[in-house]
Design a protein around this nucleic acid. Structure first.
Length: 543
RNA sequence: GUCCCUGUAGCUCAGUUGGAUAGAGCAUUUGCCUUCUAAGCAAAGGGUCGCCUGUUCGAAUCAGGCCAGGGACGCCA
């Protein structure tokens, strides 16, 4: 929270104490400053009178009228008004606004940071695509959201670990191995039959080709085909993510989890707590006791574990590592999964409220308004790599964050690629580049903090007020785990700048004024760069 | 059948967790480049917030019930 807001909350609290001394615990009331939607309702607004209405048993508007009388006036406030249902609206003075700009400048690079995550550990697991094929569109969205969220949480002081869970064993990997073997034999001219559940994508041929060149006359085991294919694909995935600007701290192998003995520990813990039973030769977890609609098999009748079993053990490890917040980002096909995992966590005695499982909803690709068809099973799909190659990294990441995580996303490749005003990425980047260009143009005008009171135009004050909201926006994005909130803010901020740019010249013959304006746009530039950085989008100096 | 997501302007979507006359971009119409990037700005039109009932000072937001679209429901992962 910026200083001005802290001050306002303080004087509101004092006024409340004087007006209604009988309300003892006004700290728990939580005075929250809101930013009114409409300008005419002032710069900050408080709905405390409405909240107190029931307790005091008086109409909100009367309560507000009493409170307002006790509010301390100063030269930071032009006016305080009571509005219809019972809002108390604050109109701050130019001095307060300019003073806030000074505060923002003094905070430098730490402006916008929040202390909400200080001393807390958080883990975020995302993408975690099976090493059975290249990353697809859906992974692109999860990667963009996950990485941006990690950056935002880090900005809020969290000690954050980014993790990728590699599903390197099980039926799917076996199918992958068989697919590679079939293609390999095909290439070497031998008889082969392609497995029914095999992966038909062209990339299997590429791997087979590579294998053929490096292993001419050697005998190859089934095991080797599996490992070779998974390793090759994992390398491609890592390279794609690297080029996408996403770095993971931990690559966690499911195979290593199996070897660690943690699955057995997890199962015996569940058994001790009385949540396991046997039926039809399999062992079941009584997840229905925790809001799941079906009990789940944890040991199949052939003695092997299901996917859920290892994932339960994996989540047990997450809790054991002492994270304060555990975040999973999954694809839409995993939604049925949330209750199962939460059930397991509770059965193991952990607080499942610490676990946030987010579902990144479906992405539909369009090209110039027409849907792009794809089918994973047939090996026809658009990869993240193809999208990056076509529209570029910045636009790709931006477009994937452009909608709320839990809502469906239409991604139009033609639009993302378009370097026109239809394309919202450019709108923000353009604002940043424009500022750079002005600063370049005004070489001999240095930022100067002494004449900031010369900033008195409506568009200038609007711009500063928009800057003042940045810390709130960051916190909102972190609390809601929603990078989209930040993206929307940057669009607004860029808009305020473009408006200002068109209304006034920054560089004029008036030196003190020019210096003040340069100082302002410098700060806008910094915040734009900071926000874009958190989204993983480049802030361009020139366009 | 069960579960999840969605339903707001012609289109794509916001709506600060229950607040004020429901907002933005695109599209449409009209203005603005001899001056720091027109990839921009200013202005106008456009709404039964899917439907019904309830909760209260107050509902697009919460609860219940319908209707419509999308997705998921394996001893696959």
């Amino acid at each position: 929270m910026i200083k001005l807001e802290t001050y306002l909350v303080k004087i509101i609290k004092e006024a409340l104490n004087k007006a209604f001394p009988e309300i003892s615990d006004n700290d728990s009331l939580g005075i929250v400053l809101e930013i009114p939607k409409e300008k005419k309702f002032g710069d900050f607004s408080v709905n405390i009178a409405m909240k107190l209405s029931r307790q005091i048993r008086k109409p909100p508007i009367d309560i507000a009228a009493v409170i307002i009388k006790h509010i301390e006036r100063s030269d930071l406030i032009n006016d305080v008004k009571v509005e219809k249902p019972g809002f108390i609206n604050f109109y701050v003075s130019n001095k307060a606004v300019v003073g806030s700009l000074k505060d923002i400048i003094n905070e430098a690079d730490s402006f916008g940071k929040s202390s909400m995550g200080e001393g807390k550990k958080a883990q975020i697991e995302f993408v975690s695509a099976n090493p059975t094929g290249p990353l697809t569109v859906a992974h692109g969205r999860q990667a963009a959201i996950g990485d941006s969220l990690a950056r935002i949480l880090q900005f809020c002081g969290y000690d954050i670990t980014k993790e990728y869970y590699i599903n390197d064993e099980g039926v799917q990997i076996q199918a992958l191995g068989k697919s590679l073997k079939a293609r390999f034999l095909e290439l070497t001219g031998e008889q082969s039959e392609f497995p029914e559940n095999g992966y038909k994508g062209r990339y299997i041929y590429d791997i087979a080709e590579k294998l053929k060149n490096s292993h001419k006359d050697k005998k190859i085991s089934e095991e080797f085909f599996m490992e070779y294919a998974a390793k090759e694909i994992m390398q491609t995935i890592k390279r794609d993510l690297e080029d996408y600007g996403v770095h993971f701290d931990v690559w966690y192998s499911q195979k290593s989890l199996g070897k660690s003995g943690n699955i057995e520990k997890t199962l015996s813990a569940l058994k001790d707590n009385g949540f396991l039973y046997e039926r039809e030769g399999a062992t079941w977890f009584r997840s229905t006791q925790f809001k799941d609609d079906k009990d789940r098999v944890v040991i199949k009748s052939d003695g092997s574990y299901t996917y859920v079993t290892s994932d339960m053990a994996y989540h047990r490890e997450k809790f054991e590592k002492g994270y304060d917040r555990i975040i999973d980002i999954l694809g839409p096909d995993h939604h049925g999964y949330i209750n199962r995992i939460k059930a397991a966590c509770e059965a193991l005695g952990y607080d499942s409220n610490k676990l946030h499982i987010m579902i990144a909803q479906l992405v539909t690709l369009y090209r110039g308004g027409k849907p792009v068809r794809m089918s994973t099973r047939e090996g026809e799909f658009v990869t993240l790599r193809e999208i990056m190659d076509e529209v570029g990294r910045d636009a790709t990441r931006f477009f994937f964050i452009m909608r709320r995580t839990d809502s469906h996303l239409d991604f139009d490749l033609a639009l993302a690629k378009a370097q026109t005003l239809d394309n919202p990425v450019y709108y923000i980047q353009y604002a940043h580049a424009r500022i750079s260009s002005i600063i370049e143009f005004s070489k001999n005008a240095k930022p100067n903090f002494n004449n900031l009171t010369l900033l008195d135009k409506e568009q200038e004050l609007d711009l500063i007020k928009a800057l003042m909201h940045y810390p709130k926006i960051i916190e909102a994005a972190a609390i809601n785990l929603e990078p989209f909130i930040l993206l929307a803010y940057l669009q607004d901020l860029a808009g305020f700048f473009h408006t200002y740019y068109n209304a006034y010249r920054v560089v004029t013959d008036d030196k003190p004024l020019t210096e003040a304006r340069i100082t302002l746009i410098h700060t806008v530039k910094k915040v734009l760069a900071s926000g874009l950085g958190l989204l993983g989008v480049t802030a361009l100096e020139k366009m």
